[in-house]
Design a protein around this nucleic acid. Structure first.
Lengths: 166, 166
DNA sequence: CTGTCCGGCTAACGATCATTAGCGACGGTC
DNA sequence: GACCGTCGCTAATGATCGTTAGCCGGACAG
């Protein structure tokens, strides 16, 4: 709390004039993060394009977010167990929804013959986790921008799923 | 400490008859984990086979470990920042070595024309992170075994990297 | 037998840290 | 110009937790 206060130029206890508790603060941060991720994901899905394009877009959005908000995302994934109920269950539900969108899109692509995979679920987990991992190592001052990174990862995802054309 | 003690049927303070400190315990666990990962990785690389086969094998080993030792691996990745120097630097170095093996193999495959990627480093990160992610969700009682999971992920990795033939 | 580690125990200490109590300054409203 | 809500501060409280002190029983060597 003292450290959080320092970042905005006030003392630790003064934070309680704006926030109910540390737990609630964490819950707010994580809820906003999931809301934002879901919002961007919906936006990406609502645009036109075939399955491949839509997969690319939700992957780009996913990776971009984890690069641009790496710290939030990093603690977000790390501190889930420290949430109190019912916040924890709520956040886990939002994460399930987020994953489901990937899985459904992959299944759709598979049924259309655009994708090949032995498991929609595992493909979806693999893509999600490689994006989440970005938040652990990404360096904004480095040689690769969030956009470049995101499109590169989206191409990884597509290649992982693309049906081999006979 | 109390909880750790409970798992082996003794009280918290009694642990100090076997361990110097909680930090040292964490350092020991993480060092053993990295040593084991590196050992298995070397073993996988030392066997015969072309680049593709070797990539499959080190990916299998990587994912298998994260499924079978999911809890160790999970805290291992989560608690790195809680290590004290010089342990932290030592572990980070081991991780770098571990990653380098992936990257070198990918580069080799790319130079041989077996793999295509815009970035050896990002490919390697993506494969590593999807394996690390396993330790966060894998359920040993579930429908998929560590072996199945590992070979599936290895196929993901290979497809991610495989040069599109003509 | 006797001494001596070994490894368990309880009780207490000390640091950290989230949180509360209680005070004062300041801005806007009647 | 008195009132009051907002928001900062310092000081203290209380819980948690890693760790140390100090005690005791049992195995085993001489």
């Amino acid at each position: 709390m003292t450290e959080i206060g320092e970042r905005i130029g006030i003392r630790g206890p003064s934070l309680y004039k704006h926030v109910e508790s540390k737990h609630q603060l964490l819950a707010v941060i994580m809820t906003r993060m999931m809301d934002e991720l879901l919002r961007r994901q919906r936006e990406a899905l609502d645009q036109d394009g075939d399955v491949r394009e839509r997969l690319q877009r939700i992957t780009v959005v996913h990776v971009q977010y984890h690069a641009e908000h790496r710290y939030e995302a990093f603690v977000g994934h790390r501190e889930i167990d420290n949430l109190e109920e019912p916040d924890r269950s709520k956040i886990l539900q939002l994460r399930r929804n987020y994953e489901t969108s990937f899985r459904k899109l992959i299944r759709e692509g598979r049924q259309l013959g655009a994708f090949t995979t032995v498991s929609d679920r595992l493909s979806s987990y693999a893509i999600l986790d490689m994006g989440i991992g970005v938040s652990a190592w990404f360096n904004p001052g480095g040689s690769v921008s969030p956009n470049e990174l995101a499109t590169t990862y989206a191409s990884f995802a597509e290649r992982m799923l693309s049906a081999v054309v006979g």
